[in-house]
């Protein structure tokens, strides 16, 4: 028998604290697989966010720091600038990155910080109980948009990759989805390019990963993945928005 897939070494033996069917674990595994395949584990520092993945350092076994809410890209900047030989990743949700941390994120991208951002977007604040996020879809009901998100009151879903791709110093910007095996394979390809952008010292890289939140969407894990395909991806299309020269 030949091994086709195997749980990557950097995934620790500690079961995650995520709800059943939460795609955070898929994103974790993709990060861990690439760290192992690219032989980066021992030089990696991951900056974890505030949100559901606040305990991420228990689940991926690298050096790690825990940032204040939204400040991961600033913290990563401090680490990478003083230790350019470290491989620095931030792992952030949509509340953390697109709301409270948007300034830190945009300016890290403007400066072309040689860091990689894994941006998991599930369209709400999962940890705090499913409140509206900048990424919540129009009409979507959350605990703070109980009548559905009304664009007249709170605007439209925020498209982070499309915004960042307009900045000259970004090296690789893409959006993937974690809803299906096919999309997960593609997500890994995108993430590998993002990692390469940092390894080759080209610039700022970010991959948004469209995710679900079965608990707060009040759906089964399977139905939540279907909702990604039917409702979320039409608003947040998958694709590469910026591939700078030299990114493989």
């Amino acid at each position: 028998m030949k091994t086709v897939y195997k749980k990557p070494e950097p995934i620790t033996n500690r079961p995650t604290t995520y709800c059943p069917g939460c795609p955070h674990g898929i994103a974790h595994r993709l990060v861990a697989e690439l760290l192992e395949e690219m032989n980066l584990t021992s030089e990696t520092v991951i900056v974890w966010p505030v949100g559901c993945s606040v305990f991420g350092y228990y689940f991926i076994g690298t050096d790690a720091v825990e940032a204040a809410h939204g400040r991961a890209c600033a913290m990563a900047t401090g680490m990478k600038r003083t230790h350019p030989e470290s491989f620095v990743i931030t792992y952030q949700g949509d509340g953390d990155l697109a709301s409270i941390g948007i300034a830190e994120t945009v300016h890290a991208a403007v400066r072309g910080e040689k860091i990689t951002v894994v941006y998991v977007n599930n369209g709400n604040y999962g940890m705090t109980g499913g409140q509206m996020a900048p990424t919540t879809l129009i009409g979507q009901k959350t605990t703070t948009s109980p009548y559905g998100r009304d664009p007249k009151l709170t605007g439209f879903p925020m498209h982070v990759p499309e915004m960042l791709a307009t900045l000259e110093a970004t090296a690789y910007i893409a959006r993937a989805s974690l809803d299906s095996p096919q999309h997960i394979i593609q997500a890994k390809k995108f993430l590998k390019k993002a990692f390469n952008a940092q390894v080759n010292g080209i610039g700022f890289s970010l991959v948004e990963m469209i995710s679900s939140c079965p608990t707060n969407w009040k759906m089964t894990p399977v139905a939540a993945m279907e909702r990604i395909r039917n409702e979320v991806l039409p608003v947040f299309p998958i694709g590469e928005f910026k591939v700078a020269e030299g990114v493989e």
Partner: peptide, 21 residues
């Protein structure tokens, strides 16, 4: 390293990151 941050909020978190190293 000299770096002008986007705000004092960003600056202190850059300090925090560097301090962690």
């Amino acid at each position: 390293v000299f770096l002008q941050a986007g705000s004092e909020v960003a600056a202190i978190n850059m300090v925090y990151g560097a301090a962690c190293t």
